[in-house]
Structure formats: C-alpha cells, structure tokens
Simulated scan of single mutants.
Amino acid sequence: MQGLKDKTIIVTGGGGGIGGAACERLAKEGAKVAVLDRDLGAAEKTLERILQSGGKGIALACDITDRSAVDAALQAVEQRLGPVDVLVNNAGWDIFKPFTQTNAQEWERLIAINLVGALHMHHAVLPGMVARKAGRIVNVASDAARVGSSGEAVYAACKGGLVSFSKTIAREHARHGITVNVVCPGPTETALFANFADAAPNPDKLRESFTRAIPLGRLGLAQDLVGAISFFASDDSAFITGQVLSVSGGLTMNG
C-alpha cells in the first residue's frame, strides 16, 4: 500500500482479533502503530508481535467511553510517535438477545462503546488533522448496520449511526484533505463473535445458519479484514471518501 510508511496510526480495540490483525498489517506496511485497548495486556501482546516482526509501535490502555482517557492517550501517542495521520476506530462490543429481553443498562453500554467511543476518538483527533489538512479515518462498523441482524438491535443501531456519522464527517472535512470510510465485516471468527454465538440458545445452529447464508461458504477471519482497512488508511484510497465496503463473503451485496 502506498503512503503508510512512517505514518502514525491509532487503532482502537487493537488487542482483539480484527484490531490486532490490522495493527500487525499496518506495521508491516511501515506505519508506527499505537495499539489502544481497554485491556492493556491484550494491547501489549499485539505490540509484542509487531516488534518481533521488526515493526514500530506502542501499547496504551484506553477506555474510549471516557473522554479524559481518550485525550490522555492521544497526548501520549503524539509525544511518542508524532501527530496522528490515521485513525482506525475498531473497538466494539455486542450481546445476543431479542430487543425486548434487553435492558437500559445494556443499551447504555452498547451505545457507549460502539457509538459514543468512536465520537470521542473523532472529536479528539480531527482538530489536528484539520490543522495539518490531511488525514485518514477508517471506521469498522458491521453488516448489521446495512441489513439488520436478529438479536442485535441496539448494536445494529449503533453501527448504523456510525455509518451515517462517517458520511457526514466525510462531507464536512473533505475540504481539509481528510477521508472517512467504513469497513463492514460480516460474521467473523473473533472472541466477540464467539461470545455472541455462545449467548444464543443454540450456538452450533447459529454458526451453521450464518455459514449457510454466506455465498463464499465460511465465516470471515480477522485476516480477511486487514486488506480493506489498510487500503482505506493508505494513499491508494486518496480519492475515496464517504464509502462503505462490506467484507462479508457476499453475505450482503449492496451497490
């Protein structure tokens, strides 16, 4: 990918499956990667793999639902790696329940992590990008945002909100040389999906039904997402903004 070498990139949820894989790929492309995660131990494991491969980066504990924690993390990143060139909003959380069986506390947590946390990250990083008149933002949403998903009503609402928010920010900041694009995974083999499936009445049946619905015949892997994320982070996508790309084995085929 063009234009990633020596760029400073923040990846939220960098200790997880998709986030960790994205961090490693971006580091292999020559970027300096700030691995942010609520779980510092998980972030440090990702960083260890980056350093073992000859890459550059740092690991930071950051709860994206806490604006003061976001501001502190951004300050640490800029002090240690330099101004942020790319933001990858990947952190997320989900539960599997019919909407009428959920409660307000669960809604609040889902919204805080999946939507408000991303708003905090944009609000913190955008002023610097505007001042430098350059930047890339990649938001990891979900195909649930595009077509809905039974048992994920509030999660889908948050990811749908992230998609429309991304398009709006793309319009507001195009004149500043900032691009904003969205990657929508389908069902992907991660710890988040495992927890989601295990909460279903019949996890094996759920996995089978998802697999049957995917034209390419399997669930996604974290590695399936990193190419799309890296592309939107790179200069190869310099004339692309406000777009949504499904990486779901053909589960959804929206034009």
Rank of each mutant, 00 (worst) to 15 (best):
L4S: 08
K7D: 06
G13S: 01
G14Y: 10
G17Y: 04
I18G: 07
I18K: 02
G20W: 09
C23R: 02
E24S: 11
R25H: 03
L26A: 02
L26M: 01
L26F: 08
E29N: 03
D37L: 03
R38L: 14
L40G: 12
L40H: 12
G41Q: 10
G41W: 09
G41K: 12
E48T: 11
R49Y: 05
Q52K: 15
S53I: 04
G57M: 08
A59S: 13
A59V: 10
S68H: 07
S68F: 00
V70K: 07
D71Y: 04
A72C: 08
A73Y: 06
G82F: 11
G82S: 10
P83D: 05
D85K: 09
V88Y: 06
V88K: 02
V88D: 04
A91T: 06
G92W: 00
I95L: 14
F96R: 14
F99W: 11
T100K: 03
Q101L: 11
N103W: 14
N103Q: 14
A104T: 14
Q105G: 05
I113L: 01
N114G: 01
V116G: 04
L119V: 15
H120M: 05
H122E: 14
H123R: 15
L126G: 09
V130F: 12
A131E: 15
A134G: 08
R136K: 11
R136H: 00
V147H: 04
A153S: 15
Y155S: 04
Y155F: 01
A156Q: 10
A157C: 09
C158S: 12
G161F: 00
V163R: 12
F165Q: 03
F165R: 06
S166W: 15
K167G: 08
I169R: 03
A170H: 07
H173S: 01
I178A: 01
V183P: 02
V183W: 07
C184T: 07
T188C: 13
A191C: 06
L192Y: 15
L192A: 15
F193I: 14
A194C: 03
N195A: 13
F196R: 15
A199H: 02
N202W: 01
L206K: 07
E208Q: 13
T211C: 12
T211A: 14
R212I: 09
R212F: 05
G217R: 02
R218N: 08
R218E: 09
L221Y: 06
D224K: 08
G227K: 07
F232T: 01
S234F: 01
D236T: 00
S237F: 09
F239A: 05
I240T: 11
V244T: 15
L245N: 05
V247R: 02
S248D: 15
M253P: 03
M253I: 10
